[in-house]
């Protein structure tokens, strides 16, 4: 069976299952969804057709990688890359592979990031979408390798690279190899950048630790979704270190914007349009004579 068919099968299977994670609701699965922010209850369908944004308070629910692709790229243009890469257990951590396999089943993904090429309002782009439903979106060897290969492919194709980040950081079970994925992805981005190519980083909830401290922060343009949690160290660690209460909006997208750490916050409903405009603004030959 071709990899592509495999993916579509998984895709159908998982879409409904993930739309209503247990944590967020105690209502009949699939039917109702409770907003964790305003606590109002909606038909799951209503939330889904609203790009998984709460119709009442604008809370942005976490999206799966496939939902993101569907909401962002031109329909039927996405071709996945490197779906054949599989995670190993370099430090022999007990039940690590079992956990990864369980998440493969749960999400229909091969790892915590989905990469590939497609078009955005007709412009060719390479995208990577991290999925926090898979091991908290943490970065181990496969995530680092898939992102690196996607960047290299974008460089080769001479097209923009766009990433949606959602990650708790480096994956502990792969130890220092995970840490080194921060360097690997960054050196690849440097090459992409040296070619004068555009990199847009879109940080979604949550983007922390080693992912925040590598490619997520390296966009020519750094964007975030409203209220997304973005930061280097965990809130609890900081509270224990500084022994003071942190402001409620600490490490939110709005906090980062106010401190000069972000270019812009885009509502999910305007994400596709705005990012497409940014890509068009960077089109080569866009200015006559240049």
């Amino acid at each position: 069976m071709a990899i592509k068919n495999l993916l579509t099968i998984n895709r159908k299977k998982t879409k409904g299952a993930l739309a209503n994670p247990k944590k967020e609701s105690s209502f009949p699965a699939d039917l109702m969804t409770k907003c964790p922010s305003c606590r109002k209850i909606f038909l799951t369908k209503e939330v889904e057709t609203n790009l998984k944004v709460c119709p009442n308070c604008d809370h942005h629910f976490k999206m799966t990688a496939w939902e993101r692709i569907d909401s962002f790229l031109d329909p039927e243009t996405f071709t996945p890359f490197d779906e054949h890469l599989r995670t190993t257990n370099p430090l022999n951590f007990p039940s690590y592979i079992e956990k990864v396999e369980a998440d493969m089943k749960k999400t229909g993904l091969s790892e915590a990031v989905l990469t590939g090429s497609g078009t955005l309002k007709g412009e060719k782009v390479v995208v990577a979408v991290m999925d926090s439903h898979f091991r908290m979106g943490s970065m181990g060897s496969v995530v680092g390798e898939k992102i690196t290969r996607a960047i290299e492919k974008a460089t080769e194709m001479q097209v923009p690279f766009i990433i949606f980040t959602a990650s708790g950081g480096a994956r502990m079970q792969e130890g220092v190899i995970s840490l080194m994925q921060m360097a690997k992805t960054s050196v690849a981005l440097k090459r992409h950048s040296e070619e004068g190519l555009l990199f847009i980083s879109i940080m979604t909830d949550p983007t922390t630790g080693g992912v925040s401290a590598s490619f997520a922060s390296l966009g020519d343009i750094n964007i975030a979704e409203p209220k997304a949690l973005i930061g280097f160290a965990g809130r609890r660690v900081i509270e224990q270190t500084v022994r003071e209460k942190l402001p409620d909006d600490f490490q939110t997208a709005e906090f980062l914007l106010a401190h000069g750490q972000l270019d812009a916050i885009f509502h999910r409903k305007e994400m596709r349009d705005k990012v497409a405009t940014i890509v068009k603004l960077h089109k080569r030959g866009g200015v006559s004579g240049v």
């Binding site: 960054s186 050196v187 440097k190 390296l218 930061g231 280097f232 270190t241």
Partner: peptide
């Protein structure tokens, strides 16, 4: 891991070094 460090972009500062050292 501190408040001021986050405000001034601890993540960005580290990321920038990885990126620039590559070149």
């Amino acid at each position: 891991p501190g408040k001021a460090a986050e405000e001034r972009g601890q993540s960005e500062a580290i990321a920038r070094n990885l990126f620039e050292m590559a070149g």
